[in-house]
Design a protein around this nucleic acid. Structure first.
Lengths: 102, 102
DNA sequence: TATATATTTAGATAATTATTTAAATATCGA
DNA sequence: TCGATATTTAAATAATTATCTAAATATATA
């Protein structure tokens, strides 16, 4: 969850996500949309993959990336819980100084 | 928008948001929930404020913080656009190498 | 098999962000 | 007005992240 939020915190990575929403694309095809070097894009793709936001699969020479909307929906869920209709003063948040977010 | 995502990328700041969802709280009250120093919490509160996610208002000695759900809903909107039902291959994303995210 | 293409990994550096202690500012209440 | 409380700002440092070039790996194809 923390990884997802961190991955979404970068504008390049958010643009990559939008590109992948349209269709699956190879690493090089993605890189062509940016002025950044290919290794940098590779690094961003890795961050997205590590967060579970995208998946990759080799097809011959190419490595195709695709979006994993499941994780995006988890993030969405977290936000909905906050803005969420109704439950305005309902579910108490309980954590102590040691507590970590799941 | 970028500021919002960056603000949400930190677990301490997300916990602060959850605390403020319950009710408005003073800076000190918020700081008591964490083992971090007060200046650090002040810094995080500033990041949230800068992103427009929270507002502050002085009440005598205390400075009360409250949640601004409007900005959270904008973030929510961004995510909904991606996971969004229906419009699967509809709105083309068009940006060039110079383009900045609004 | 040698060469070209696609992509990642390594290593270095620059930039950003988080954190702390100490000091400054503001308000309250005796 | 003075001392206590609440909070922020400043300055320094540590930790993390982003970026680049060069090198390594994997696959395709002539």
């Amino acid at each position: 969850m923390n990884e997802s939020f961190k991955a979404l915190a970068d504008p390049t990575r958010r643009q990559i996500i939008r590109l992948l929403r349209e269709k699956d694309r190879s690493a090089g095809e993605i890189a062509d949309y940016f002025k950044m070097s290919k290794p940098s894009i590779s690094h961003h793709l890795n961050a997205l993959k590590h967060a579970g936001l995208v998946q990759d699969e080799r097809h011959g020479q190419f490595i195709m990336y695709s979006l994993n909307t499941t994780v995006l929906e988890e993030v969405l869920g977290w936000l909905l819980e906050l803005t969420g209709t109704g439950k305005q003063n309902e579910p108490e948040v309980h954590f102590n100084k040691e507590a970590e977010e799941k």
